[in-house]
Structure formats: structure tokens, C-alpha cells
Amino acid sequence: MRWENFRFALFEKAPEALLEHSMIVVITITIAILISVPLGVFLSRPKYKKFGLVTLNILNLLQAVPGIAVIALALPILGLGMKPAIVALLFQSLLPIVRNTIAGLLGVSSDVKEAASGMGMSQRRILWEVELPLAIPIILSGIRTATVYVVSIGTLASLIGAGGLGNLIMGGLSLFRPEYLLVGAGLGALMAIFLDRMINYLEYRITPPGMRVE
């Protein structure tokens, strides 16, 4: 271990890698939320429930595919770069959010929904003002799972040229420079833990005090 190497990795290499990694995570999760929350809402409507099981089963299968395999399959189909990596990561980050959206919406007590419709609320208003607010903590915990997952598999995305912290780790492994490994891996771990804690805190704040479970 040499201090110059460590400093070089931390101050010259890491900022760019960290920025790329955060970009991958933010873009993937934003698109994942935009796709899967509406999908979850759609699938939890009584009319379309029968599609729900099929979709969930397909997503479950996709989820069982290991991350490194998804990345490897993305390369011949989509090519090199950040875009293919984001598409590959997207595939696997959908399931936790869709599943939790459905679970959250179905978990809303039917008494509450009945009370709302008894007060003359339309279906749309019930969804926006009753169901979604009550389901948000559960949806957020799905988003948390997906985020941690994307940070984790994002380190593998450097294999297909997406950049990010994986570059430092791979470089460290092939040059056998432990300093690079420690900086890349450490920042990756810290980023995942930080995001997990942050969303967890958000989840806690957003849950009404009466609903908090311990």
C-alpha cells in the first residue's frame, strides 16, 4: 500500500467515477419509478387483477437471473456504454417496486376505501387521496430495495463500458493495486449504505405516526 497511489485513486479517479455511478443510479431509479408505480397501480385495479399474477411471475423470473448475467446478455443486444447498462439494470429494478406498489395498494383496508366512497369520493380521488398516501411507505421500501440493487449491480456495469466505481475496482483487480480496490469498493459500499439509510429515514418520516410499526 502506498499513500501516493491511494491519494491518486481517491482524488483523481474517484470523483469522476462517483459522479458516473450516481448518474447511473439516479437515471435508472427515476425511469424504474416512472414505469413501475403506474404499472403497479394499474395491476392492482380489480378489473385488471388477472394480469397482475402473470406480470408478477414474469418479473419474478427476471429477478432470479443473476446481475452479471443480465449485464453480459445486454452487451450483444444493446452494445457498449451507459445506455445499455441502464436498460439492463432497469429490467431488474422493476420487480421490487411493482410488487410493493401492488402490496401497498391491496393492503389499504377496505373499510377506509368504503368510507371514502361513502363520502362521495370518485374512484380517482380515492386512489390519489386515500390509497396512494397510505401505500407510500411500502412503495418507498420497494424503491429502497431497487436502489441498493442498482448501486450493487452498477459496479458490474463498468464491464460494458458504463464507467462508474466498477472501473476503479476492476482496475485495482487487474493491476493488483489494493488502494484502488479500497477506494472503489469502499465508496460503493458507503453509497449503498447511505442511500439505504436515507430512503429508510424518508420512509419513517412519511409514515403517519399511528401507522408506524416496530
Binding site: 446481475g67 441498493v148 448501486v151 450493487s152 449491480i153 452498477g154 459496479t155 458490474l156 466505481l165 466498477g166 475496482i169 485495482g172 483487480l173 489494493p178 480496490l181 479500497l182 472503489g184 469498493a185 469502499g186 460503493g188 459500499a189 449503498a192 449504505i193 439505504d196
Partner: peptide, 18 residues
Amino acid sequence: ANTIFCIPSLSMFAILVT
């Protein structure tokens, strides 16, 4: 356990190697 589970797998391997 939750914290450990968060650590990206490539990072975990890389840290253990050092």
C-alpha cells in the same frame, strides 16, 4: 446484517481481497 447486505458484491469481494 442489513448493512452488510447493502454492500455491492463486487465491492465486498474487492475489500476481502485486500
